Amino acid sequence: MITYRDARTIDGPELAAMARRSFTETFGTLYPQSDLAAFLDQAFGANGLPSQLSDPDFAIRLALAAKENGGEEIIGFVKMGPVTFPGEWRPDAIELYQFYVLGAWHGEGVAQQLMAWSLEHARSHGAREIILSVYVDNHRAHRFYEKYGFEDIGRIAFRVGETVDDDNLMRLLL
């Protein structure tokens, strides 16, 4: 059984571990180990994702699956907040920062539920557009976002340690 709820500060360590695992399973082979480690520490260390759980500028929704021995584990999440990409953005824009679902849960409807929450969250907070970036060669993610009406609007550099990748900027007008 899968349940969904807003993240709480206490979720920080487990959420960070899940995010590290998801990023590594998706992109881990693309980078030298030192670059991957530097990125994971920056993005998901104490000053990264866990610190944003108590920041009112960010909203994080979790997908949790029941464990066989009781309790739940985080299997996916989405994070939204103010747009931080360089450039001029509408004041009613919101950024979809991270959208992660563990590979074992792909095809189980988790991503669709998290996207439904993202769209509702954006609309209920007065957003008129959602901005995100996605790795240029992450074709699965591109297809997913395009299915919801996101369109490519440019490119942006994305740094993983010393490695600089190209990401596509995408926008959805609400």
Rank of each mutant, 00 (worst) to 15 (best):
T26V: 05
D55L: 04
G45Q: 07
I60G: 06
M170H: 07
A43H: 02
T29P: 00
G161T: 03
R61V: 00
R171E: 11
E129K: 02
A66S: 13
A111V: 00
Y145G: 08
L40R: 10
T163V: 11
F77A: 07
R159I: 01
Y148D: 10
R159G: 08
I2C: 09
S133L: 03
T84H: 04
R90H: 11
V101K: 03
R123W: 09
F77H: 15
I130R: 06
A116T: 15
H106L: 02
I10T: 13
A37R: 12
D92M: 01
N168H: 14
P32K: 10
A17F: 00
H142Q: 13
D6N: 14
M115Q: 09
A7D: 10
Y100N: 11
A116Q: 13
D6G: 13
E129W: 00
L53T: 14
L172W: 05
D92S: 12
P50K: 14
N47C: 12
R171G: 09
L114N: 11
I60M: 05
A122H: 03
T9V: 15
A104W: 00
G76S: 09
H142F: 04
G12I: 00
Y135K: 11
E72K: 12
V164T: 15
N168E: 03
F150E: 01
L15G: 02
A19H: 01
V160D: 12
F99M: 13
F99Q: 10
L30R: 14
G12S: 06
E108Y: 14
A66T: 15
